[in-house]
Design a protein around this nucleic acid. Sequence first.
DNA 1: ACAGCTATTGCAAATAGTCGCAATAACAGA
DNA 2: TCTGTTATTGCGACTATTTGCAATAGCTGT
Lengths: 161, 161
Amino acid sequence: MVEFKDYLVLFRQNGYRLTSQRTALLQTLTDHKGEHLSARQITENVRSRDQNVDTATVYRTLELFTKLHIVNEIKGATGISYQIVPVGDKHNHIVCEECGTTFDYSSQYLEGLRTMLVQDLRFELHLEHSTLSGVCEQCQTNVSLEQYGNQRLLSRRTHGT
Amino acid sequence: MVEFKDYLVLFRQNGYRLTSQRTALLQTLTDHKGEHLSARQITENVRSRDQNVDTATVYRTLELFTKLHIVNEIKGATGISYQIVPVGDKHNHIVCEECGTTFDYSSQYLEGLRTMLVQDLRFELHLEHSTLSGVCEQCQTNVSLEQYGNQRLLSRRTHGT
DNA sequence: ACAGCTATTGCAAATAGTCGCAATAACAGA
DNA sequence: TCTGTTATTGCGACTATTTGCAATAGCTGT
């Protein structure tokens, strides 16, 4: 279990300061562990704890937390969302281009890719912080019929099948 | 070599129309093959061909092209940029979290991951359209000294080493 | 506990990106 | 070529995100 104390240490080590705003944000994120929160939702929740926290602060803090790998920035069909990096069992996100659903998968799938990139390109992958995309099983059937398209554009494609 | 004719066919097949705006955008993108253009740069360039093209149209078109896999949306340190999908030798992007430099690597590195995801999760990966992130060789040395940080935050970390 | 240094914040203004809708213009069919 | 259908556009308004800067407040050292 990660404690706030741990974050304090993490911040201090790097010359960052633990402010009330950052604490409120950390609190909000841990309270919604596993959920995907939008910047707006986060702002609202943070404000319920600490009145006038500015949106600029929220964005800047979210950016910092992302850099420090405290949160994951997830790009789904509804836009960008955030969630606190889960401790223990690591999982990654993959979003379906068709239906927009976000799926999780175990980090172990990435070991091979990670190893190759380090060996050949000396590039240290941080894939847990990227959201991959593709087409889920459910949608593959539709795609084979329709070839292209997605939720939003679907309604415009009234002919062509 | 991909011709505009090919795009015309692609559009028609799916009920989309080839408008002058889309043509201008396609032209802009092909003229800057291999480069990473921001939405602003694209808008400016498109306008030099076709006067008042609205930003909304540019964004909508870019979104459509991304869905159709005509362009790649690349998330780098400077923000989101676009480039036309290269024909032939496929390559993917990986951006260094530290220095923001974008690197290319061959698609063949992804075959393993792709195969596993299809087998186990029935998920069809479209990794060419995602930008991965990590730390490049150059920056790994610095990171080992500094632990965390990036370009933008660097200046603020005056002590703590 | 106090003082100094400077990271961080809030504010205000700027920029970026999105959305609804009426007008326009591709395209298919006659 | 002309006509009808409807995908697409531009516009205006709106929401989201970013940025510069002066004021504030953590943290370190005394």
